[in-house]
Design a protein around this nucleic acid. Structure first.
Lengths: 138, 138
DNA sequence: CAGAATCCCTCAAGATACTG
DNA sequence: CAGTATCTTGAGGGATTCTG
């Protein structure tokens, strides 16, 4: 940590990148391993840190913290500290976060609607692939 | 290579995973570094391999191949080989790919509409963060 | 309870070289 | 031209430890 340099996650002052890049950046955030589950839970109601931890199977406290920080930084979630002992921290979706959730939900709708096709495509691909592979070794 | 086992990219026969996991899986695919740009280009019109390579700045031929294979496996893009010398391979969106493109476009719309808010949130976050950091060292 | 700091390891991206 | 086969590197993520 020698240099408390500006750049945070590698996107520094990326404010003037082409829209496609910014778009991918956002998609990458919500497409990462945990963000979506956090957003989904918070879409229901606000949660405390430990509630999220229990609610998301397999997440480490480190990754929960990292994920929440990223979402907070992007203005997707709101963090409220209540200075009591032991400390209490609540997380909730911001207005921005809620509008994002809407889009994500509709994308999920697409996924549900087409899961069958996707699985079918994979099966066929893997089959063709296995055939080709078998031929090469013959 | 030793075991030509079933599993391909680590999702094996993931057909019965919870919807949330499948959704994240798809988001992760389209949120990866190159898929979106490929889909965007193909949304315009079919492209040859080398056209895509030239059209996507900074992609290596390996990553283009890997990306295309993933999209093909999921039934998003269609691969057509014309057996001539030198070989000619064309890629195009499938019907499934086109419906996905629609959703992606609307998600991009959201990003464009809220880029300002996101950037503002980041600026404020980084500022608060820097303040807190400065205080700790005092 | 909620997190910060640290270490470590895996896996995917990238560069490079070779081939049908 | 359109790939495949290796190798190296680096970021993402897990386990553990320490603290206000």
């Amino acid at each position: 940590m020698g240099e408390p340099d500006g750049a945070r996650t590698g996107d520094a002052g990326a404010c003037h990148e082409p829209a496609a890049v910014r778009g991918r950046e956002i998609l990458a955030r919500i497409g990462d391993k945990w963000s979506l589950e956090v957003i989904a839970l918070l879409g229901d109601r606000p949660h405390r840190f430990s509630e999220l931890r229990r609610g998301i199977d397999g997440i480490s406290q480190r990754m929960l913290t990292v994920t929440l920080r990223g979402l907070e930084r992007d203005g997707i979630v709101d963090r409220t500290v209540t200075p009591v002992t032991p400390p209490r921290v609540d997380y909730a979706l911001t207005d921005l976060g809620r509008t994002l959730l809407c889009n994500v939900v509709s994308l999920f709708g697409w996924v549900e609607d087409h899961l069958g096709e996707i699985d079918k495509a994979r099966l066929e691909f893997d089959l063709r692939d296995a055939e080709a592979r078998a031929l090469r070794e013959a």
